[in-house]
């Protein structure tokens, strides 16, 4: 697998960034932000991964040193969990704001949502 999987993750990040920069529809922008989020989470999991690693659960009779030899790194998994929860909160806020914006402006098009001047 080697470096390919990292490059693919980076490609996912770029796709998200492109959507946020280039698209004008609010819903598409929200999807773009989510894709960026997923790319970073994916990288975080990949950092802890090792090929043929086992799940980092301590079974009876096993010492911590044994598990560290064979298991994947559990710390990035805990971090990903936190990051996903934060992402959920942000998504809820983004979607509720999009609904409110649609009520006020009657559109999801960012070009028509411009009451603030430069």
């Amino acid at each position: 697998m080697g470096i390919t999987i990292y490059l693919l993750t980076f490609a996912v990040l770029l796709v998200g960034l492109y959507i946020v920069v280039a698209k004008k529809n609010i819903i598409k922008i929200i999807v773009g932000v989510l894709i960026i989020d997923y790319a970073v989470n994916l990288l975080l999991v990949l950092v802890g991964y090792r090929s043929d690693g086992v799940a980092p659960i301590l079974s009876p009779g096993q010492t911590a040193a044994d598990l560290a030899e064979t298991g994947v790194d559990p710390l990035p998994q805990a971090m990903v969990l936190t990051s996903i929860v934060i992402g959920l909160g942000i998504t809820a806020l983004m979607v509720s704001m999009a609904i409110r914006l649609h009520q006020k402006y009657g559109t999801f098009d960012m070009n028509r949502i411009r009451k603030l001047r430069g």
Binding site: L13, L17, V20, I26, I29, V33, I36, D37, V40, L43, L44, S83, I90, L93, M94, M97, A98, R100, L101, K104, Y105, I113, R114, K115, L116
Partner: peptide, 24 residues
């Protein structure tokens, strides 16, 4: 109000992208 939502949405999108880069 409509202006406040517009400003907050802009801030929200840019802020979230910034946070993703910090985590990266």
């Amino acid at each position: 109000e409509s202006e406040e939502l517009e400003a907050a949405f802009k801030y929200l999108i840019l802020g979230t992208v910034g946070s993703a880069f910090i985590l990266l």
